[in-house]
Amino acid sequence: MDAVVDRDHALDLLRQMLRIRRFEEKCAELYSGGKIRGFLHLYIGEEAVAVGAMPCFTSEDAIVGTYREHGHALIRGTPMGPLMAELYGKANGCARGRGGSMHFFDATRRFYGGLAIVGGGLPVAVGLALADNMQQRRRVTACFFGDGAVAEGEFHESLNLAALWKLPVLFLCENNLYAMGTALGRHQSQTDIARKADAYAVPAEAVNGMDVLEVEAATRKAVDFVRTGHGPYLLEYRTYRFRAHSMYDAELYRTKDEVAQWKQRDPIALFHQQLRTEGYVTDADLDNMETAIAAEIAEAVSFAEMSPWEPMEDLTKDVYTAKNGFHRSAQS
């Protein structure tokens, strides 16, 4: 254990990873029960990335996520209730229930989604950073995306533009080795993603995404670089998704053995073990943590259950900004 990590912070990292894990286990259960519908992409196995990265940002910084964003929103600070209500499609959800699992938004926390077209978030992140630069604000925009997104033109165009204009964007690639059912080596000619940044003169580093402390240390360094006006930075977090791509996936493309191997590197189990060895955490601490999280989840579920559905009359609300109290008409 790195002596510089203080105990409270370490316990918090463990607790945050557990919050994501238990929250999503509940989501999977609710999906089977039909409470959550549509697409549901779980982050289980990748928790160390969001949990290690988020503490490095200030509340002024912006976050752009993907459809696998439950963990990011939760750790960014959106309370669990509105997230669960969003998954239910209820009006008290963080996006009034309109987006569901793939489209979490939270303006007060500068959480810009929840964008589900692969690669679609990167140019938006570049623009958010451009706005900061043009208004002389020292803020950072953190953009999360998967290894699959690296194949899209928007990845390359965004790195180039951000570097050319020296914009404060942090490109955060969550390399979980698969884009749906296509393994990294079957969709990339150069599987070392960090090296791609070289071509655009963007400094980059690959880190062990299963180690929350390593994630945090590398992200902090990268944030400092970006915030001090040096332009963009790319981090490749090497991680693994323990669950199926979505709830429809039969996982024909990987072996159970491979998944089992990676589960040996479970970021939560490993970190817990590390903290135990160091005497940072007792079994009682963990029990308390689990109990508190279970209560938080139970409360979030009942918040979602009690939340009303958005009334039918509001269907066309917010297609445009309301003017003079009227919504521009939307024909049907």
């Binding site: 229930g97 309109r98 987006g99 958005e310 269907l315 066309t316 297609v319 024909q331 049907s332």
Partner: peptide
């Protein structure tokens, strides 16, 4: 209806 298609059924 001329809206982005919403999630809830």
């Amino acid at each position: 209806v001329e809206v982005p298609i919403p999630y809830p059924k």
